[in-house]
Design a protein around this nucleic acid. Sequence first.
DNA 1: CAGCATTAAATGCATTTGCATTAGATGCGA
DNA 2: TCGCATCTAATGCAAATGCATTTAATGCTG
Lengths: 127, 127
Amino acid sequence: MVETWHYVLAKHAKAMCELERELGDRHGLGPSEFEVLDRIVRHDRKLRLQELCDEVHLSQSALSRVVARLEKAALVARNACDSDRRGVFVCITPEGRAKHAEALPTHHAVLTEIFADAPAPEGALRR
Amino acid sequence: MVETWHYVLAKHAKAMCELERELGDRHGLGPSEFEVLDRIVRHDRKLRLQELCDEVHLSQSALSRVVARLEKAALVARNACDSDRRGVFVCITPEGRAKHAEALPTHHAVLTEIFADAPAPEGALRR
DNA sequence: CAGCATTAAATGCATTTGCATTAGATGCGA
DNA sequence: TCGCATCTAATGCAAATGCATTTAATGCTG
């Protein structure tokens, strides 16, 4: 229990730190920015802000600001939702798609290095 | 690899959030404060700030401030180190010890709940 | 012994985050 | 239809964190 927590804590700290440095230096992205970009790419469609909120581990307000940053960087665009004008769609731009494609190998490399000693994907961690 | 990362991310977010709320509401402690207190108790001796730095997942500056908060709350005391006057010893006070004893069950309860579905301690996670 | 690189801890500062609140849009019930 | 509870997203604000710098103490080298 507590050992598992310590494992999570250690891996999280190390991975976050490294992702921050690598994604930041190489691509000018923070881990949160990459995460959001990645979610949109994987869905491959415009998403409501709220849908993203369920998938990313950020508060609603933090997500709102991440998207604002991404928009300022022209990596995503916000579009009004016609059917419910409270909602906002987030669409990835070609630049955003390119940036994601460029950063993905970096992301993968960092995780591969850090979880090299981790249990196989088939292992007990799959929950 | 990436699945493991997602697992870590999810558990970390959930546990941190819950710890923040439970430790905060019940004992007026943040997760970092508890972590530091816990380290000192487990060592059961005064520690150099730097020693703590290696064990806690915080930057040196963040740790310095956590200790400052704990000192203001009278849960630890800072003592000069005679042999190397750059160093600072952190000692737990009786109040600090009591607070830790009081918060420990809360900490344990939160982790138990969140990692109830986790692999057994003997499992692959032990690294 | 003098000078300088190194180390420990604290602090200035910018950034990110979460909570609470706000502003605007929906929609349900009287 | 009107009014009110609900919902979405944005924003004010305070707190925590990391990086870079600072201050003070060591200690190594010439």
